[in-house]
């Protein structure tokens, strides 16, 4: 399948990433058309996460919308950059000594699939927020969308690994690394939604807030029992 001549963005490739992840993964592994694939994947990553970030930031509105829109693509790209050497090393140790180009293109198209799912989740999230969803519900909805996108990206990555020894160990290891790095990167660049009860908007917060897992758990508690006393203003 070919893209439109002269077009900057290959919609056909995006369709293949969503519909035929195994084929795309095989192309990455065999280093076929890697530069075009990487360029299109980068565009998808930036656009998808930017729009999703804008929807998340719309909970607070104003400058927060632009801050969150700007930060989400940075989180995505930083996670990929930090995880790339680990993916290269892990795949080599588990009997898949691919070239760095193959590993990078596989990661980028996985990231593109992740962002395309985020893009699909953007309208429902925006509508939920527009209908007046609480801070905690909005946070959980955004996390749920992130989880779905992660599963979609993982599917492509798993297909890309092909058959061979150590596949399950490698998947578990890569999931752990992606989760740890992604969580820490996004935690570093918080806030995205804004802070409840605080009118002014900050680009970054340096409050001691106990970590990402702790904050998600607090949100579950608040959604289940809104009357529960919290530790936020």
């Amino acid at each position: 399948m070919k893209s439109f001549e002269g077009s900057v963005f290959d919609v056909t490739l995006m369709s293949r990433i969503l519909r035929a992840p195994a084929d795309v993964a095989a192309d990455c592994r065999d280093d076929r058309d890697a530069s075009a694939m990487a360029r299109n994947a980068l565009i998808a990553i930036v656009v998808g996460s930017l729009l999703f970030g804008a929807a998340v930031g719309s909970w607070h509105g104003g400058a927060q919308t632009f801050f969150a829109a700007g930060k989400l693509p940075i989180v995505m790209l930083a996670t990929l950059v930090v995880c790339a050497p680990a993916f290269y090393a892990v795949s080599a140790v588990f009997h898949r000594p691919w070239s760095a180009r193959s590993v990078l293109s596989l990661m980028l198209v996985s990231g593109a699939r992740f962002s395309l799912v985020l893009l699909a989740a953007t309208p429902p999230l925006w509508l939920l927020i527009n209908l007046g969803a609480s801070y905690d519900l909005s946070k959980l909805a955004a996390s749920f969308a992130y989880g779905l996108a992660g599963l979609a990206a993982l599917t492509l990555l798993v297909r890309g690994l092909g058959d061979g020894p150590g596949k399950r160990s490698m998947i578990a290891l890569m999931m752990a690394i992606f989760l740890l790095v992604g969580a820490q990167t996004s935690w570093m660049l918080r806030p995205y939604l804004g802070t409840p009860g605080v009118q002014h908007v900050v680009l970054f917060t340096r409050e001691r807030e106990g970590g990402l897992v702790y904050q998600l758990w607090k949100s579950v508690e608040h959604v289940v029992d809104p009357a529960r006393p919290g530790d936020r203003p």
Partner: peptide
């Protein structure tokens, strides 16, 4: 090779 691959992730954690 594994440790070298994990070095950027370790740097991210120990610094932040």
């Amino acid at each position: 090779l594994i440790l070298g691959g994990l070095a950027p992730a370790a740097a991210l954690y120990v610094v932040t």
